[in-house]
Amino acid sequence: MFEIAALKHQYQHQEVLNIPEWKVSKADACLLLGNSGSGKTTLLHILAGIRVPSSGKVWVNHTLLSELSEAKRDQFRAKNIGLIFQKPHLIASLNVSQNLVLAQYLAGIPQDKKLCQRILEDLGLGDKPKAYPHQLSQGQLQRVSVARAVLNQPALLIADEPTASLDDESAAQVIQLLKAQAQKWEATLLIATHDQRVKQHFTHIKNLNHTFSDESTQS
């Protein structure tokens, strides 16, 4: 779960984000719609503790992020937040299994190769632990990045444009996969996208174009 209060963020004195209030419950799935430059990614980064907002408060899993030092935020993020990017960036010098174990190592939790293998099997990648990123298709890479994001059983799963450059069928598969994984690990799911095809999979939709509002009020 996460909660936002009076959040504002500026770039060079220009306001790019203004969210008076937003609360998403545990295991809820919501969609954040917005065009390029609307501040979606900035909001995701603030929620992930990667970026510090100009003002306002953000709680993730009952923890006020602004109270944490940068190092503590890094550790908090590693254990509580799973991030999936548009490009499923994996460390090229490590194989799939090592990429997953790296996430455990950096989060400071015990390295559990069996858990990694279970998750890979769950995502249809049971035969790929030794494969290197360059040996995988784009879809397989995206699934590995999902596996890496859910591996540490985060409270909040964030995906930034996960369906960009995917065809309809693949886009639908990725969304279903994310929803299923979030449900399985009882994580709150937040997907940010400008892809209107994704809307049909969600009931809780927020729009970030111009102002922060419910999608129903915009349409």
């Binding site: 190092a71 890094d74 550790q75 991030l83 460390i91 790296l102 950096l106 890496r148």
Partner: peptide
């Protein structure tokens, strides 16, 4: 990405 996964600057 490593920072994002929890690696500190010092690491």
């Amino acid at each position: 990405v490593m920072r994002n996964l929890g690696a500190s600057r010092l690491k």
